[in-house]
Design a protein around this nucleic acid. Structure first.
Lengths: 217, 217
DNA sequence: ATGTCTTTGTGAACGCGTGCACAAAGATTG
DNA sequence: CAATCTTTGTGCACGCGTTCACAAAGACAT
């Protein structure tokens, strides 16, 4: 039986092993003392807890470059996501296949949601159309929305929205880049902000580094 | 002189006013007691601290759907980013304009970086090509990389990498969605994990909600 | 079967960020 | 010019998550 110790996993993930064990314990996932965790069982348990074993039909609204990129993105299927439909407001797009899936017109939005039992919608429309699309999705029964449009969406209670701003990540990189440059010839600002100095040196690639609490939208 | 109080800003941003004032104090940004912050000066100061006043030339490597979407993304220019070049390995793409910028062949990569003084690179290639592209970017002088390919990149010290996984946000939504469903008919799992219960009820749309520390790559 | 060794699970302490609360500062009014 | 009012800047305490450290548990060897 292949196993892993919390120490090995922690080293690989770059986190503390105690934290990892404690997290696992929340999942009720029991390892074997003196041995570690059964890999297969662990994977199954985490997958189920995260919802990876379920089938999540999603619709993508707004099939421009970004919508098409998302439709083609391979990472979805392996995570339990199934692109149930592609929706666009342009009648010329209707019927045209993208990533093997025919694009449907916005008129069909409500029936698609209902018929497929879709609870997760992805908005990749221009900013101007986002709120309107959002409202229709919610009215049709969608309770989770992933928003790529540069707008803050207003939704009723019980609906989750996550906003992805592609330029924010770039901005964070530029922020660090600026600090790199500033350290060599630091005759620019009066004093480098304490908040900036606080940054850890860990090589994390996740969207969790230290970021000022307030950033312009 | 138009001003804002920390209280107004905090309400708008959905954060605590004391935290906001403390953050501003790190920036050395002095408001006026009894009045608030001079809006214009505040904007200028934050912009400069964040690097928004600088010109950041970036290159995008891999002009598929996603690369094209990024090239067309309007939010970059307003944040001080300038797409200096689009690079693709496909010779058939060379010269073809995307978002008004002619695509150049990978052979030109090094000279483009050098000639334009590019320090930030965006990788939107397939997973297989990402590390190789990354190595060439770094060798040519790039010190910050935004990676959209589903691979963890290995870089030397001093180089920043931020990985954007488009499916992770969906996965987080699905996780919450699963919990919503589980609460209605909670006869599924033995006991819902404490970690999941910890979630706050705030309606934040940012990529900062509570997320398990360890997630499969 | 007993002892040793490894690794888990977790109670307790530590550290850090957030929020409270207030003194200091400046504007404003009488 | 004094009194009052508003809002900043910040010391301090609270709370929460992370980390330490160790007892309990099971495997494995003798």
């Amino acid at each position: 039986m292949p196993t892993v110790s919390s120490e090995e996993l922690a080293a690989a993930a770059g986190v503390n092993s105690a934290k990892l064990r404690k997290d696992f314990s929340y999942l009720g996932s029991y390892g074997t003392r003196g041995v570690g965790y059964d890999v297969e069982y662990l994977v199954y348990q985490i997958s189920r807890e995260l919802g990876l074993t379920q089938d999540w039909p999603v619709v993508i609204v707004g099939i421009g470059n970004l919508g098409a990129a998302l439709a083609n993105y391979g990472g979805f299927a392996s995570r339990g996501f199934r692109v149930a439909a592609l929706i666009d407001a342009d009648p010329a797009m209707a019927g045209k296949p993208v990533a093997g899936i025919p694009v449907q017109h916005t008129d069909e939005l409500e029936s698609i949601i209902t018929d497929n039992g879709v609870s997760i919608g992805v908005i990749a429309t221009p900013a101007g159309a986002a709120q309107q699309v959002c409202d229709r999705l919610v009215a049709a029964g969608v309770t989770s929305i992933l928003n790529f449009a540069p707008t803050v969406l207003t939704v009723p209670d019980g609906v989750d929205v996550r906003k992805v701003d592609l330029s924010i990540e770039l901005q964070i990189l530029a922020f660090h880049e600026q600090r790199k440059a500033g350290e060599e010839a630091a005759a620019d600002t009066a004093a480098a902000p304490a908040a900036a100095r606080r940054r850890s040196a860990a090589t994390d690639q996740g969207p969790d580094g230290d970021v000022p609490a307030v950033m312009p939208a």
